[in-house]
Each structure stands twice: as C-alpha cells, then as structure tokens.
C-alpha cells in the first residue's frame, strides 16, 4: 500500500445549492473511479469536512463521467446572502476534498498534480 492524496487520481469542482455545497470529484481513469467509489463513503467525506459540514452528506454516482457527486448539507453558514463566511458558496470545497490522504494499492495509477 502507498499513501496518496486524492489529487493524485482525481480532479474536482464545487459550488452551492442553498445552504449545502456540492462537491463533484472526477477520476482520471476507471481504476481511480472504482477506488473512489470504495473509499469515499458519505461518512468518510463527512468526517473529512468535520469543521465545515454540520449536516448529513449525500452521495450520487455518475459512472459515465467517472464521477461522484456529494451534497454537504449545512456547510455554508446559511448560504447565499445569509452567510457571513468567506467561502459562502463552497467554491473551495472541491480542492478541500482533494487534500484527503488515503492508503491506496501500490499499482493504482497516479497523475501528479500539475
């Protein structure tokens, strides 16, 4: 096993949906997607965003795009114009997810951040 960051196997984008943020994470290849599906449970994502996400986390799968979509409820301090937070729209949550460090099989292809 080796330690990787999710940015070694995937890219991401995030935005807002009311007081929830959405984080889409997309694997560079099929093996990376299968790995993401296995490790990125809603519970693990929720634990990763423990200081940001106060609500539940929903997960959706888009195998055609090798993507997972997460909805992080109650993450934006009210969302929209209600929020006092700097990142009131969750624009940085995608990069936040990519910071996650995980144990991966030695032969899982990685694509160094560039």
């Amino acid at each position: 096993m080796k330690k990787i960051r999710l940015w070694d196997i995937a890219y991401a984008r995030s935005g807002d949906k009311g007081d929830a943020s959405n984080v889409g994470i997309v694997a560079y290849d099929e093996r990376g997607y299968a790995f993401l599906r296995e490790v990125l449970t809603p519970e693990r994502v929720k634990a990763h965003f423990k200081e940001i996400c106060r609500g539940p986390v929903d997960r959706y799968e888009l195998p055609n795009l090798k993507a997972l979509n997460f909805i992080l409820h109650d993450s934006l301090g009210g969302g929209g114009s209600e929020s006092l937070k700097t990142d009131a729209q969750g624009k940085t949550h995608g990069l936040g997810l990519l910071y996650m460090e995980v144990e991966a099989p030695d032969d899982l292809p990685v694509y160094p951040r560039r």
């Binding site: 890219y11 991401a12 984008r13 995030s14 935005g15 807002d16 949906k17 959405n22 889409g24 994470i25 997309v26 959706y60 799968e61 888009l62 195998p63 055609n64 795009l65 090798k66 993507a67 979509n69 909805i71």
Partner: peptide, 27 residues
C-alpha cells in the same frame, strides 16, 4: 466534466420546465 458536476444535485433528476435530464447518460 468539471463543469458538468458543478452545482449538481441528483444527477438522474435534473429538473427543468421542459424535461427531466439524466446526467448519468452523458458521453
């Protein structure tokens, strides 16, 4: 693909006044 997942909710039910789109069918 980055933009397809932007501000996405349930990808199988992207509801508009004209149709309900299934984003898991996009190639």
């Amino acid at each position: 693909a980055s933009q397809l997942v932007y501000e996405m909710g349930d990808p199988k039910n992207y509801i508009t006044p004209d149709t309900v789109v299934d984003f898991t069918t996009i190639q």
